[in-house]
C-alpha cells in the first residue's frame, strides 16, 4: 500500500499557499466552498489511489501519526 506523504513535499510552500489564497480572492463564501469542492475532486482524481485517499481523509479528520 502506498503511504500517504506527510513530510514537507511542496517546493516553496509560501508560494503554494499564496496561490491557494489568491484563488479564493474576492469570492463569496458559497463560491469559495464550490471552488474548494472542485479542487478536492481534481486533486483526488490526480492521486487516484483510494488507499492514499482514505489515509488523507483520516488525517484530515484529525488522526495522529502512528508511532
Amino acid at each position: 500500500m502506498t503511504k500517504l506523504c506527510l513530510d514537507p513535499n511542496i517546493d516553496r510552500p509560501d508560494d503554494a499557499y499564496a496561490d491557494l489564497m489568491a484563488a479564493h480572492e474576492g469570492l463569496s463564501k458559497p463560491e469559495s466552498d464550490a471552488l474548494n469542492a472542485r479542487l478536492i475532486l481534481v486533486l483526488a482524481n490526480h492521486i487516484g489511489d483510494r488507499d492514499v485517499l482514505r489515509q488523507a481523509l483520516e488525517v484530515a479528520r484529525g488522526a495522529q501519526p502512528a508511532e
Binding site: D33, A34, A37, R38, I40, L41, V42
Partner: peptide
C-alpha cells in the same frame, strides 16, 4: 450539494 454541484460543473 456543494460536492454534487462541483462534480456536475467539472
Amino acid at each position: 450539494r456543494i460536492f454534487r454541484d462541483a462534480v456536475l460543473d467539472l
